[in-house]
Design a protein around this nucleic acid. Structure first.
Lengths: 170, 170
DNA sequence: TGGACCAGTTCACGGAACTGAAACAAGGCG
DNA sequence: CGCCTTGTTTCAGTTCCGTGAACTGGTCCA
């Protein structure tokens, strides 16, 4: 993920826009501006004028941090789906489905694999899987995860393309 | 948690020592030194000479980050539950429950574990645990702690997602 | 082109299981 | 007595999960 450089405070609105994305950013603060208050881990700032190597060092650090926080979701021992510090509880069926999809995160998982994981003795209704996928979709939305349909092949779990309007949890 | 200021690279060994602790630190880098590579979230650096307000801003940011990443509640010798400078007194049963949850802070604790801790000889009624969890919830709310239910699995103690309107204590 | 068909989405419903919350009673202790 | 702690009962509310059904949009073929 590339780091965005922007001038502060001139490009304040641009910063706001970036905050809703997961793009790390480095603020170039003019010589007489007050230092900004940046609570976010993917933000940093540097006072101008600044040496090139200093800017590069901070950019590299941001890239590094961004690398390490772009983790894959995981299901902990209690059955909670965790992603980027937030979590949701899953029902047993959802846990089976999510477990399969997390194992193949970013890849297509066949409907039969999912059905086999959730109902080893056979799927109750044709519709059952779809309904549970729907419920799972809604449950994981607050984590900015989404399930994409690949027609006639299966489902794919990935990071949401457009982040969901916040709801509190953590 | 106070931030430690140290000169880089002169105080390199001191930095190593601090890294094994959870104390945040700010490196003051001499005018001709190369910028350090600091992957850690509780570390930052600034190029000398630096304006006072810039140093203070970075110190404040580190304190902030440290607050949010490393605060864990604890039960002291007197049985008080402490969290971020505030505290509440607990009744004996609540102390058992809270003790178990603090030990697994942020993780799910099974109902049976909790019941075993509070009533080693056997839980009086199915509902007893629920009621005490309810009372414990209300008691710890002023500390901005909350107990989340994980259906059919147990309870999870964490920082409140939406802080409670303040009430004085300390 | 039209229409049958299929895959998938979404909603609503009901029973079962689980949890929250209030209210009450009893006991301990200063 | 007044206050806190604890156990108990009871009722309301929520969640889970299978089910049926309506609806949408794409595919395929005569």
């Amino acid at each position: 993920m590339d780091v965005v450089l922007l001038r502060w405070p001139e490009e304040g609105e641009r910063l706001e826009a970036l905050r809703s994305s997961r793009i790390p950013r480095l603020l170039l603060v003019g010589p007489d501006e007050p230092p900004p208050h940046l609570p976010h881990a993917l933000e940093d700032w540097i006072r101008l004028p600044a040496a090139d190597r200093d800017v590069r060092a901070r950019v590299a650090a941001l890239e590094d941090r961004s690398e390490r926080t772009s983790a894959v979701p995981e299901i902990d021992d209690a059955g909670l789906l965790r992603f980027r510090g937030r979590w949701v509880a899953l029902s047993p069926v959802e846990q089976s489905l999510a477990g399969m999809m997390v194992g193949d995160y970013g890849k297509v998982v066949g409907r039969d694999s999912l059905a086999g994981a959730a109902w080893p003795t056979g799927i109750p209704t044709r519709n059952a899987l779809d309904v549970h996928v729907l419920r799972l979709r809604r449950r994981i939305a607050p984590l900015d995860l989404e399930i994409r349909t690949v027609r006639a092949r299966g489902y794919l779990l990935q990071e949401a393309s457009e982040p969901v309007p916040a709801s509190s949890n953590s």
